[in-house]
Simulated scan of single mutants.
Amino acid sequence: MATYTTETVTSSVRRWIVPAEEPWGAAAEEVSKAWGAAAAACRVARGLDEDALLPGDALWFHVRDDQVVIEFTTETPDRGGCCDCPHEMEA
């Protein structure tokens, strides 16, 4: 018999979207506001102090056609049900 475990992980993506229509793009002030709000929310989601430095890969910036998108992802393991306990399977 083989022994195995399984797990389920739920990912959540939080996004701040700043309009960046051509030909002007996005104003630095608006990107800065969104960046600050995203950083604050990321600290809360990770249980960090409000003045803690974020790792360099905590926030991601993407450019869409007419938007600047700032995002971060959190993952939550599902601890319920039988999927977190060892199972035996006949080979």
Rank of each mutant, 00 (worst) to 15 (best):
V63G: 02
P86I: 03
A91L: 10
P77A: 00
G81P: 04
I17V: 15
G36V: 00
A58E: 02
S32N: 12
A38F: 03
L59D: 02
S12M: 14
G80Y: 10
A52K: 03
A34P: 03
C82G: 10
E75W: 02
T8Q: 10
A41Q: 09
W35D: 00
L53H: 15
A38V: 12
P86C: 03
D66E: 10
T8P: 00
M89T: 06
V31F: 12
T3R: 12
T6G: 15
D84W: 02
T5Q: 09
G47Q: 08
R64D: 07
D66G: 04
E21F: 15
M89V: 11
C42W: 12
P86Q: 06
T3K: 10
D49V: 07
L59K: 01
C82M: 08
W60F: 07
T6C: 12
E29S: 10
V63A: 04
Q67A: 08
V31R: 12
V44D: 05
L54G: 01
H87G: 01
P77L: 03
M1G: 05
R46V: 02
R43W: 03
Y4I: 15
A91W: 08
W24R: 15
E22T: 01
I70L: 06
A40N: 06
A20K: 15
T6N: 11
D78H: 02
E71I: 01
V63W: 08
K33I: 10
T6P: 06
R15A: 11
A27M: 01
W35Y: 09
C82F: 08
I70F: 05
A41R: 07
C42P: 04
K33V: 13
W24K: 13
T73W: 15
A37G: 06
Y4S: 14
F72H: 10
E50A: 10
T6D: 13
T74P: 02
A27E: 02
D57I: 00
T8R: 12
A52C: 03
L59N: 05
D57L: 00
G47Y: 13
A28Q: 01
V44E: 11
Q67T: 08
C85H: 06
T74G: 04
A28D: 02
F61S: 06
Q67Y: 12
P55A: 10
E22N: 03
S32A: 15
V31Q: 13
H87W: 06
I17C: 04
A26S: 07
S12F: 15
R15H: 05
V68S: 12
L54F: 09
E22I: 00
A26K: 15
A28F: 04
A27S: 03
T6L: 13
F72T: 04
V9F: 14
C82I: 13
A39N: 06
V44A: 07
R43V: 05
A91D: 08
R46I: 05
D57E: 01
T8G: 00
L54A: 02
W60V: 06
A45C: 06
E71V: 12
V9W: 15
H62D: 11
R64L: 04
T5D: 14
K33T: 10
D51E: 14
T5E: 13
E21L: 14
V44M: 02
P23M: 09
